[in-house]
Design a protein around this nucleic acid. Structure first.
Length: 398
DNA sequence: AAATGTCACAACCGCTCATAA
DNA sequence: CTTATGAGCGGTTGTGACATT
């Protein structure tokens, strides 16, 4: 199609910058009569412009509710955060910034924000830390390195609610203290586990959560407004399998907690023999591995190899997650999520927390299996203040 | 002072989607 | 179902101000 029908109807159409006289004519006309059908606006208003051009001029410049002036730091941060989730969906991003147009935001992004991110060492396309070629080369030469998987292409942004809505109307953003320890010591040690158990599969009907690699687990899309701001700190040792019940209930109550993050865990002993894949560490003494000896997906279980007696059904996690996604889908009043940080690591943790808490929400009977977790290190911050939950120092699977 | 480069912003172009006839 | 038309979106280009050489 390209050129609009209205553009053919009128000959001698003006192009280029709008003169003050043209602006005044358009403003006067729309103020008096509204725009109605845009193709008729230039004729009625006495403008030698096409309707499309009039519409653009009105929306991007003449609208009375437009905010003028430079973008604030808060607005810039928000745009970056939104872009990390929504990609180049400028109109959706603009919808979160009252008084700003998609064109304005797009221009700001292309001219300014992309450079700022690069200066910070963040790829403006993927919102991930830029890996230097030398580092990548050296790590790729290591056959045990997970970087080959990390270089797989990023899936496109999805359009659905983020799983965070399942925790209630309060939004939450996860911040991980000691990220370096988290990613290198935790994720990379358990690449195979996460790669063989993508979190996407735990929330099948929502498709908000997927992962191509452990460190690339992303929760996508958000609701509408970005009113509340919450942060959730989780200790790496808690991932997975399950958050304590108190953690998930916090999301719904909006309580907040604060606590100093614990020191990184000591070097772990070698993992035990596991069934079909590399186990992942639950704490310094316990490991989890996927028991896929059963052909039935729903009976696939994750077992603790410490005592080899703590088994819970991975299928139950799936069920629980589905339940949460149902909550999300039916949550008409969902406020949406404010991402107060853009680091992909945070996103990855968010997804896992969502899946983990989903399971804890759904399967109350299984809470007893991990209710003995001594939590001493969860850190929650919400818009209403801050308070603390303990970090888990040790875990017992009974 | 003139030429050139850079930048931010405005506007256009091409496309998809929705809707009505 | 097809076609015509309008609305909207995102990528790209044009323009003018300013800085640098």
């Amino acid at each position: 199609m390209g050129r609009h029908y209205c553009c053919y109807k009128q000959k001698k159409l003006r192009k280029g910058l709008w003169s003050p006289d043209e602006d005044e004519k358009l403003l006067d006309y729309i103020t008096k009569y509204g725009h109605g059908c845009w193709s008729s606006v230039p004729v009625q208003a006495g403008l030698l412009r096409c309707g499309k051009s009039c519409r653009l001029r009105w929306f991007n410049y003449l609208r009375p509710d437009l905010k003028r002036g430079a973008f604030s730091q808060e607005e810039e941060d928000l745009i970056i955060q939104l872009h990390a989730v929504l990609g180049n969906r400028w109109s959706q991003i603009a919808a979160q910034l009252p008084g700003r147009t998609d064109n304005e935001i797009k221009n700001l992004w292309n001219s300014c924000l992309k450079k700022k991110l690069r200066k910070r060492g963040i790829d403006p396309v993927t919102h991930k830390p830029i890996v230097s070629k030398s580092l990548e080369k050296s790590q790729c030469s290591n056959p045990n390195s997970s970087l080959t998987e990390q270089r797989s292409p990023s899936p496109p942004p999805q359009t659905c609610y983020t799983a965070m809505g399942g925790f209630g109307t309060a939004s939450a953003t996860m911040v991980v203290p000691n990220c370096a320890t988290f990613t290198s010591d935790y994720f990379s040690d358990h690449d195979s586990f996460f790669n063989n158990n993508p979190l996407q599969s735990t929330v099948p009907s929502c498709s908000t959560i997927w992962t191509t690699t452990p460190s690339r687990c992303l929760a996508h899309q958000m609701g509408k407004s970005l009113g509340t701001s919450s942060e959730l700190y989780l200790h790496p040792n808690t991932f997975p399998p399950i958050l304590p019940q108190s953690a998930s209930s916090l999301f719904t109550t909006g309580l907040s907690h604060s606590v100093t993050p614990p020191p990184p865990p000591p070097p772990p002993p070698p993992p035990p023999e596991c069934l079909t894949m590399k186990p992942f560490r639950l704490d310094e003494n316990q490991f989890w591995c996927l028991d896929n000896s059963s052909k039935n997906d729903n009976s696939t279980s994750v077992s603790s190899s410490a005592e080899n007696n703590g088994v819970f059904s991975w299928g139950a996690v799936k069920e629980a997650s589905s339940s949460v996604s149902h909550i999300i889908d039916s949550h008409d009043q969902m406020e949406g999520v404010k991402w107060t940080a853009t680091d992909y690591i945070q996103n990855s943790c968010l997804s896992m927390a969502a899946a983990a808490a989903a399971a804890s929400l759904q399967n109350q009977t299984q809470q007893s299996s991990y209710s003995e977790i001594k939590s001493e290190g969860y850190h929650f911050i919400t818009s209403s203040g801050s308070s603390s939950l303990p970090w888990p120092q040790e875990s017992h699977i009974s």
